[in-house]
């Protein structure tokens, strides 16, 4: 029982700090891309790391809160995309079950699982959820949304593939124990 209550407090804090990271990276860090007026959203790399470390609830809420705060700091929330971010957090967090990151396991098998899940999840969110909501709320043209959402899918999946994989790989290395190491001359 005590353990459960600890999980909750740590999760609450992880949601808050995850959202703060998502916000800072999404709001102030612009990595230019070849696509005009598009910057790489490295915040999804971090959100994915939080999903694998803390699980789906944390990454879903961190994505939701972080994205809402970004939009509010610009002036007005774009709900369809905010919800897509939350759904992405939820989906990537589900991969936690298959990846034992806390014991330092992040080999080829885990890299493949992580990337398959993130590519599918980004697809569901940007092509599926965001597009559907834009149609429901704004009655936008499908063809415009397709162009927009395919770009988002591609960019976010590429960013996550590089940033997320590298971060998880490095993080897994910090979880290996020193026991097996030997000094060399």
């Amino acid at each position: 029982m005590e353990k459960k209550s600890k999980f909750t407090i740590k999760s609450i804090v992880a949601i808050g700090i995850g959202a703060a990271l998502f916000f800072v990276l999404g709001r102030f860090v612009a990595i230019p891309t070849p696509v005009p007026n598009t910057t790489a959203n490295i915040q999804y790399g971090i959100l994915s790391v939080f999903g694998i470390i803390f699980g789906p609830v944390v990454s879903m809420l961190a994505g939701f809160i972080g994205h809402t705060l970004i939009d509010l700091s610009w002036g007005s929330p774009w709900w369809s995309w905010i919800i897509a971010s939350a759904v992405y957090g939820l989906l990537i967090g589900l991969a936690k079950k298959a990846i034992d990151i806390e014991n330092g396991k992040f080999g080829v098998r885990e890299i493949v699982i992580f990337n398959v899940v993130q590519i599918v999840a980004h697809g569901i969110c940007w092509v599926g959820v965001a597009t559907a909501l834009d149609i429901i709320i704004y009655d936008e043209t499908l063809s415009k949304l397709v162009a927009q959402s395919l770009t988002a899918w591609g960019m976010n999946a590429l960013t996550t593939a590089i940033v997320g994989t590298l971060l998880l790989f490095a993080y897994a290395k910090t979880r290996t124990k020193a026991g097996s190491l030997q000094k060399e001359d």
Binding site: K173, T174, R175, T176, K177, A178, L181, K183, E184, D185
Partner: peptide, 10 residues
């Protein structure tokens, strides 16, 4: 030098 192939975390 003797730690050159270690992870930093160790």
């Amino acid at each position: 030098y003797e730690f050159r192939n270690w992870p930093v975390s160790a």
